[in-house]
């Protein structure tokens, strides 16, 4: 057993209003014993990074279905670096074409989970990557 719950920020950057995936992930992580900070729709990269820092999260999970991932995900990574918070694990999900994934990983996103991913896959990934 972990001596502490893993803290995860689930955020939806950008302008699309499709938050079902984010909510399902939040619920699944909760049921896996994690503390999920849920901030709702239309978050700017600045809000996401500042929230991640204030909440001292282990993981930031972002969901985008608008196509703006190539812009917004790397922006979050850059801001985290600027704030010396590059140690926070960042994962992404949503409608993201396969050909975009290598560039996002290069920008520092640890994993991209596309539609059809089992929630257990994400849970295992987080538990595996967050230090005890």
């Amino acid at each position: 057993m972990r001596e502490r719950p893993i803290r995860v920020l689930i955020a939806k950057p950008g302008l699309d209003g499709h938050d079902r995936g984010a909510k399902i992930m939040a619920r699944a992580l909760r049921d896996a014993g994690m503390e999920v900070i849920y901030t709702g729709l239309r978050q700017t990269p600045e809000q996401i990074v500042e929230t991640g820092i204030q909440e001292d999260v282990d993981v930031i999970g972002m969901s985008i279905l608008s196509g703006a991932h190539t812009h917004l995900f790397p922006k979050v990574m850059q801001l985290l670096k600027d704030k010396e918070a590059g140690d926070i694990l960042v994962i992404g999900g949503g409608i993201i074409p396969d050909e975009d994934i290598p560039a996002l990983k290069k920008a520092g996103i640890a994993a991209i989970f596309t539609p059809g991913t089992l929630t257990e896959t994400v849970i295992d990934f987080i538990k595996d990557r967050v230090p005890r």
């Binding site: 939040a26 909760r30 014993g33 503390e35 849920y38 700017t44 204030q54 909440e55």
Partner: peptide, 18 residues
């Protein structure tokens, strides 16, 4: 049961985040 939680109060406060 699981020790997990959804902490959702911030949704109403995100204007203040930055």
């Amino acid at each position: 049961f699981t020790g997990g939680a959804i902490l959702g109060d911030r949704i109403r406060m995100q204007d203040l985040a930055t």
